[in-house]
Design a protein around this nucleic acid. Structure first.
Length: 287
DNA sequence: AATGCACCCAACCGCGTCACT
DNA sequence: CAGTGACGCGGTTGGGTGCAT
C-alpha cells in the first residue's frame, strides 16, 4: 500500500519562493492563522503544496524569528542540548527562542561540528576524539532503544547498567566477572530503584554530556561510602547556570540525571505527556 | 576575467506519529 | 483494530555565493 502524495505535484511550484508568494502566505496567515496546511495553498491562491507553505512560514516568514548570527551563548547551549538530546533539532530549537530546527540543524552541520572537531571533541558522542574507553567492547553500552521494551533483553540491560554504575564510581568491575554474582549485587539495587519511583518504569537513565573535570561548573560531593562523585544541577547542564531553576546542591548526579520522578514533571520544559510521546522514538546514547 | 571549488542554507523528500473514523 | 489523512521531523539536495587559483 503506497502513501498518497501530500499534494498534486503536477500543479505546484517548486524551488525558491517569490516575493509575491511570500506576501500571499503572510497575508493569509495573518487573517486565518496557522494550521490546515493542506487546504491553505488553495485558500491563499498559492500554487504550492501545504508542506512547502508550512516550511516557508516556520523557517523564514514567522515574525518572531530571530535573524542573524548565533551568539556564543547560543552555540554553547546548542552543544549542551545536543549532547543530551542528539539530533532532536525541534526539541533543541524549542529551547532557543526565535530559532528554527532547520536553522539549528544547518548551523550545527556547518559550524558547530567543525568547532567541536577543532576542539578535539567528537560531535556525535561529545567525547574527546582520542579518548578510547578501556572497557572491553562487550561491556560497553552503545545505545538503548525504548521503541519496544518487551523486545529488550532486560536482564542483560540491567547488568550493563550496573556495570556502568560501577565504572562511573571508579569501583573497578573485575569482581563482577561471574554473571550470577553480578545479578546478586544488581537485583537489590534495581528493586530499591523501582521502589523509589513506583510510577516510573522507564528503565531510563540519561548520561550527562561529557564534562571536563576542570570545568568550573562541576562540583564534587562525597557519598556515604566515601566515594567521590561530580554533580551539576540540570539547569547548569543546559548552560543556564545561576538561572531561577539552578539547584547546584548536588540533587542531580552525573549517574542518574532523570532516574527518579520529579515533582515538577518537566524535562527541558516539556510536560510528562510530551516526554511520554517522545519516549517511543528516543534513543539514549550511553557512555 | 574565467574557472573551479567549497561553503551555506532554503527547500525538498520520505517516513513516523497522531487523531479521527 | 485497521485504514486514512494531516502534520511534524530529520536527512538530504541543489542552487546561490564567495573565494582561490
Amino acid at each position: 500500500m503506497g502513501r498518497s502524495p501530500c499534494c498534486e505535484k503536477a500543479h505546484t511550484n517548486k524551488g525558491a519562493w517569490t516575493k509575491e508568494e511570500d506576501d500571499r502566505l503572510i497575508a493569509h496567515i495573518r487573517v486565518h492563522g496557522e494550521g490546515c496546511w493542506r487546504s491553505l495553498p488553495k485558500a491563499a491562491g498559492l500554487l504550492r503544496c501545504g508542506k512547502s507553505c508550512r516550511l516557508r512560514w516556520i523557517n523564514y516568514l514567522r515574525p518572531d524569528l530571530k535573524r542573524g548570527n548565533f551568539t556564543d551563548e547560543e552555540d554553547e547551549l546548542i552543544i549542551k542540548l545536543h549532547s543530551l538530546l542528539g539530533n532532536k533539532w525541534s526539541l533543541i530549537a524549542g529551547r532557543l527562542p526565535g530559532r528554527t530546527d532547520n536553522e539549528i540543524k544547518n548551523y550545527w552541520n556547518t559550524h558547530i561540528r567543525r568547532k567541536l572537531l577543532s576542539r578535539g571533541v567528537d560531535p556525535t558522542t561529545h567525547k574527546p576524539i582520542n579518548e578510547q574507553s578501556s572497557v572491553s567492547p562487550e561491556l560497553q553500552i552503545k545505545t538503548i532503544s525504548f521503541a519496544k521494551e518487551e523486545d529488550e533483553d532486560k536482564e542483560h540491560l540491567e547488568i550493563k547498567m550496573i556495570v556502568d554504575d560501577h565504572l562511573h564510581a571508579d569501583n573497578g568491575f573485575d569482581q563482577f566477572k561471574d554473571q550470577d554474582q553480578k545479578k546478586n549485587i544488581i537485583n537489590p539495587i534495581l528493586i530499591a530503584r523501582k521502589e523509589r519511583c513506583p510510577d516510573l518504569n522507564l528503565e531510563l537513565r540519561i548520561s550527562p554530556p561529557y564534562q571536563n573535570p576542570t570545568d568550573p561548573l562541576m562540583k564534587s560531593t562525597i557519598d556515604d561510602h566515601g566515594r567521590r562523585s561530580t554533580t551539576l544541577c540540570f539547569t547548569c547542564n543546559l548552560g543556564l547556570q545561576n538561572s531561577k531553576g539552578c539547584n547546584c546542591s548536588g540533587s542531580i548526579s552525573t549517574n542518574s540525571s532523570i532516574s527518579s520522578g520529579s515533582s515538577s514533571n518537566e524535562f527541558l520544559g516539556l510536560t510528562s505527556g510530551i516526554l511520554s510521546n517522545y519516549r517511543s522514538s528516543l534513543e539514549m546514547k550511553f557512555e
